[in-house]
Each structure stands twice: as structure tokens, then as C-alpha cells.
Amino acid sequence: MTQTPSASPDPTLAALQRLIDVVAALRSPDGGCPWDLAQTPETLIPYVIEEAYEVVDAIRQGKPEAIADELGDLLLQVVLQAQIASEAQQFSLKDVAEGITQKLIRRHPHVFGEVTVADAGEVVQNWEQIKAQEEKASGIERLTPRLERYGRSLPPLTAALKISQKAAKAGFEWDSIDGVWDKFHEELEEFRQAIAQEPKANQQAELGDLFFTLVNLARWHDLDPAEALHSTNQRFIQRFALVEEAILQESDRPLADYSLEELEALWQTAKARLKQG
């Protein structure tokens, strides 16, 4: 009697299971890797952050192979964290997957329910309302705990934007952009005074206030301050590379031997070259 062949396993699920098995083997007390066995959720924090940023860099470069490679490194961190938690009987990768699946279903009633939406903006609005309802049901009604979470978990510039967005949505907002500009000039003057005559801690605090006000100016103009700074960093590196290239072609003098006027001339030439493409 011929048996009906079973359905072939999904190759994606098979690959994921292979990764899970490999990570479990690395963490096995019987023949596992000493480095992996020594890791804790806390010691892996730098790697989670590093891998996330490397994914972002690969996406910005638009290189599919690099994106796939970096996503693999980030996925490893997810599986490794879940493996360590599973060993401590806290949660498993299954719990992680089920949790995010349920959250997506809850927060997309226009896909998995009867709700209708007009556009992506309404989707975001519904998402925030559902999220607020979930937090209220879990006993989180004040905005402060969410702001604290942003401050702890996000890079400072991104956290500042998120904090200001949430506070503004709750009503903690200027009446007009003029008020934001007035605040900027006020903070700039306070920073100048701190630099001139106050201790380092005060200077640092006033610099932070100035940054936060700049973030609010960006928010009012629908600009992303983190992306803006990233672009500026890249432009600086590109221009600096052209300055170094010009110096190497011109002479054997090190960059430090050039005067400020000479460097400014090279810098302006580099800017013009980049502007011309």
C-alpha cells in the first residue's frame, strides 16, 4: 500500500529551526562554546545595538546582500536572547513570536477586523489609540512612564523627538512656531552664559536644553533631526576625504601643517565638487 507523501517542510521555517538548533548547541553546557555560554542578556546589549545600526547602514546603502547579512546578525541576537531566557524558564522564542503576532492582529483591526480606514495616517491614529487602551488596561495611564521608556531605550536624538512628539500630542505644546524660535534664542543665550561663567555640569545641561529645543524646531517643520545629523556627518566625511585627496596630490605636507585659510580653500573646493556630482 502506497503512503501519501507528507507535505515538504517550509524552507523558511526549516532554516529558522536550523538557526535555533545551532544557537542551542552553542549554549549547551555539554560541548558548547565558552564565549556563548558566558553571555547574559546584559552582556549582549552592545551587540543588539550594534547589529541594529548595521542593518540601518546596509539599508541606507541599498545593498540587498549586505541587508540580508546584517538582518541575519540581528536575528541571531533575537534567537540568542530567547535561548538564554528559555534556559532560565522566563520565556521562549515561541512566546516572542506569538506575542508580536497577537499585537499585530490587535493593532490592525482594518485588516483582521471590521474597521475601515481612509489612509495610512488613520492607521497610525488607530494604532496609537489601541496602544493607549492596552496601556490603560495594564495600569499605565500616565504619559511619564512611556517618556521614561523612550529616554532609556532610544538613542538620545531619537528619544528627544519621540518625547517631544508625545508631550505635544498630550497638549504640552507651543501655540505657534514663533514660540519655539523664542525658546531657541533663550536657550542659546543661556548656553552662551554657561560657557562663559558657569561650571561644566551647567554647561552640559544648557547644551542639552539647546539640543532639545532644536529637536522641537525640527518637529514643527516635519524634519527628522537624527536623519539630518546623519546626512551632515556623511557630507563632512565626503568633503574631508576630498580635502585629504587634494593634499596628497599637492605635496607631502601633513594636514596639520596647513593654515586655516588653506584648509578653508580646499574645503570650499570639495563642497563645489560634491555639488557638481
Results as ranks from 00 to 15, higher is better:
residue 11 P to W: 01
residue 12 T to F: 15
residue 14 A to E: 15
residue 22 V to H: 06
residue 24 A to V: 04
residue 31 G to P: 00
residue 32 G to D: 03
residue 37 L to N: 14
residue 39 Q to F: 06
residue 45 I to R: 15
residue 48 V to G: 00
residue 50 E to S: 08
residue 50 E to W: 04
residue 53 Y to L: 15
residue 66 A to S: 14
residue 77 Q to T: 15
residue 78 V to F: 14
residue 80 L to V: 12
residue 82 A to C: 13
residue 86 S to L: 02
residue 86 S to C: 10
residue 91 F to G: 03
residue 104 L to Q: 09
residue 111 V to M: 10
residue 114 E to V: 02
residue 122 E to C: 06
residue 122 E to I: 07
residue 123 V to S: 05
residue 125 Q to V: 11
residue 134 E to T: 06
residue 134 E to C: 06
residue 135 E to L: 14
residue 136 K to M: 08
residue 140 I to E: 04
residue 143 L to P: 05
residue 144 T to R: 05
residue 149 R to T: 12
residue 151 G to H: 04
residue 152 R to N: 09
residue 157 L to R: 03
residue 161 L to D: 07
residue 172 F to G: 00
residue 178 D to E: 09
residue 182 D to T: 07
residue 183 K to Q: 09
residue 188 L to N: 10
residue 191 F to M: 14
residue 193 Q to T: 11
residue 194 A to Q: 04
residue 195 I to W: 07
residue 202 N to G: 08
residue 203 Q to N: 12
residue 206 E to C: 07
residue 208 G to D: 03
residue 217 L to W: 03
residue 218 A to R: 00
residue 229 L to M: 12
residue 230 H to M: 00
residue 230 H to C: 01
residue 235 R to W: 10
residue 238 Q to C: 10
residue 246 A to P: 01
residue 249 Q to A: 14
residue 250 E to N: 11
residue 254 P to Q: 03
residue 256 A to W: 11
residue 258 Y to W: 15
residue 258 Y to N: 07
residue 262 E to C: 11
residue 263 L to D: 07
residue 265 A to V: 15
residue 269 T to E: 14
residue 269 T to W: 12
